[in-house]
């Protein structure tokens, strides 16, 4: 079921949820968030790739949680973060952020494609930037955060760097 279609209709309004990670501001489409877990216990998984923050207990299941800081190549946070639960084709997964902000109603016209001078790692994750009156929010695309997709992308870039 594709739900991101709403973003492309010019002028239509949609709700986004603002997030913070490592001093940067992000936003995720509200319709894609299953649930927000407030500062849950995240169990570290040894040997897991860097972008995996660990596993969390979510409704009787053990859920893999992607760390947004890890994805951006930042140090992991010293304090507990919030976890957003997204649904994907391979089941739900969590995204660890430093803190969840607020829900904002934005117009699809405010979404700008990726600025070209952005960090490449950041660029891979973002669907664009939301232009708010007072600040910019990086629009996250849950599709691109899906653990397996991130894993294969990481494997690709590793291969690329080896080739260099």
């Amino acid at each position: 079921m594709k739900r991101e279609g709403t973003a492309s209709i010019p002028g239509s309004r949609q709700e986004i949820c603002s997030l913070k990670a490592g001093g940067m501001h992000f936003a995720a489409p509200l319709a894609r968030i299953l649930e927000i877990l407030g500062k849950p216990f995240v169990q570290h998984v040894p040997l897991a790739p860097d972008f995996v923050g660990g596993v969390v207990h979510y409704r009787g299941e053990v859920l893999i949680a992607i760390s947004l800081r890890g994805l951006l190549g930042m140090e992991s946070a010293s304090s507990k973060g919030d976890v957003l639960v997204f649904e994907s084709g391979n089941g739900p997964f969590g995204l660890i952020v430093d803190a969840v902000g607020e829900v904002l109603s934005v117009s699809a016209n405010d979404l700008e494609p990726c600025p070209s001078n952005l960090d490449s790692r950041c660029e891979a994750l973002m669907a664009g930037a939301w232009k708010l009156p007072d600040r910019l929010l990086i629009a996250l695309d849950p599709e691109r955060l899906e653990p397996q997709r991130v894993a294969s992308a990481a494997a690709q870039s590793r291969k690329g760097s080896h080739a260099d």
Partner: peptide, 25 residues
Amino acid sequence: VKPLAAVLRDIGVYAGASILGNGEM
């Protein structure tokens, strides 16, 4: 026994995960 995401299963060391009585995993 709870299944693990494919990314973690692929590490090859873990067969799954479990939630213990005290809530830890």
